[in-house]
Structures are given as C-alpha cells and as structure tokens.
Simulated scan of single mutants.
Amino acid sequence: MTFEKLRTNTRNQWIIIHLRYLVGFAFFPSGLTKLLGNRFTVLSIDTPIGYFFEAMYQTGFYWNFLGLSQIVAGILLMTQRFALLGALLFLAILTNIWIITISLSFTGTWVITSLMMMAVIVLLIWDHHKLMPLLSYNQPMTVKSYPDPGRIWINAGIIYTVCLLGLSWPGPVDEGLERWTVRGLAVIVLLTFILTQYKTYKSRRLLLKNQS
C-alpha cells in the first residue's frame, strides 16, 4: 500500500520523469566522444588511468560500441515509454564504469558514478513491478498498472534528446553559425522545460479545482 501511494503521487512522478532525463543525458557527452572515435582523456599512459583508457581506445570498434551503447541507453531513458529498458541497459554499463572508477582510484569520479548508481537503482525500484514476472518461476501473477507519463513528457523527451545530443557534440565551438546553433539548442531546451512545467502546473490546478 505504501508503494502504491508513492507510485501514484504526482510529485513523485514528476521527480522520476526528470530523473530519467538527467540520468539519460549523463551518458551523451562521453558516449558521443567514444562513438566518434575520439579519446576520452588526455592523461599520460604513464598513469594507470591514462594507460587503461588508451588501451580501450586502441580496441577500435569496441570503443565505438561502448559509445553507441551509452547513447542508446540515454535515449531509451529520455523516451519515458521505454525507460525501464533504458534503466536496465544503463545499469549494465554503469556497473562496469563504477567498478573501474573505484578500482583505479579516480579522484572524485567514483562519487559521481556512485550517485548515478543510486539514481538508476531508484528508477528500477520505481518500475520493479514490471520486472516481477521475470523473477517469478512458473507462477501466474497480475502486474499492477500505474499511470504512465503523459504525451507531453514523451514529446519533451524527444526534444531534449535532439537538443542535448547537439549540445554534447565533442569539439570546440567556433564563432558564427556553430555558436548560434548551440545557443539556439540551449534556448529550445530551456523553453521546453518552462512550457512543460507551466502545463503541468495548470493541469494540477485544474485537477484540484475539480476535486474541491
């Protein structure tokens, strides 16, 4: 009963929706860097961290595959509709990254990856009822249905995906058209955020008015 109250609370739904956006975006910069075949760090190979990343970079296609997997996981989370699949893929990738940052003693990075692990676990707990049939063996069970994110959040996820991928594109931004493109994408992200919050606020006020 407690989980049902948490799951149907509109404020909690809002938090989960935006947590998916945030976690999904976290993989875009590093994923694009790998997918385009660029080095992830400029550290010397004389250091354990630099040597490790240089070895992974030299694998070629595997380096690109890692980047593609990160981007796919991020996009799935952004869609909201396929967020559970994205969270599972994200967990598989992030677990490896998390262990690497701890074992190689990344300065401060392990804190960030640990927070990301906590966020992904929260997302999986949120949708754990959808995983229960997979964990049960030869037992009939009914999966509880909860409200899914509305169309506005799905559309916003598409806009965020396109704009944030553009903003995450590696490399310097030159003067002229490129810089204005970056500014335009940033404005679209901001306007999308403001518009979704405004519509959510209006819908909530209307709902409260009808209930009173």
Rank of each mutant, 00 (worst) to 15 (best):
M78L: 15
I100F: 01
V189D: 04
D46S: 15
P172S: 12
M141A: 03
L36K: 06
A92M: 13
L177T: 03
L6D: 05
R39I: 02
F65S: 13
C163R: 01
L208F: 13
I45Q: 15
L131R: 12
N155F: 14
I75A: 01
L123W: 05
H128D: 14
I159G: 07
L131Q: 13
S114V: 02
T196E: 09
W98C: 09
L115D: 02
P149C: 11
V72F: 03
L195Q: 06
S105C: 09
V122D: 09
I93D: 05
E4G: 13
H128R: 15
L123M: 14
S203F: 09
I125R: 06
L115R: 01
A87P: 10
L207M: 12
P48A: 05
A92H: 07
A55Y: 07
I75S: 04
V143A: 08
L135A: 14
F61R: 14
T161N: 00
L191F: 01
M78C: 11
F40K: 04
T101W: 05
E4I: 15
Y62I: 09
P170Y: 00
L134N: 11
W98A: 09
T8W: 04
R205W: 05
L135N: 12
N12E: 10
F3D: 10
T101A: 08
T41S: 12
G86D: 00
R7D: 03
V143L: 08
N155I: 14
L89H: 01
L167S: 13
F106K: 03
G150D: 15
I188F: 12
T196R: 08
A73F: 01
W169Q: 03
S168M: 06
V111M: 05
T2Q: 15
I17P: 08
Y201G: 03
C163N: 06
S103C: 10
T192F: 04
I152N: 07
D174R: 12
S30T: 00
P133E: 12
I17E: 11
E54N: 12
G60H: 02
N12A: 15
L32G: 00
L134R: 12
I194V: 09
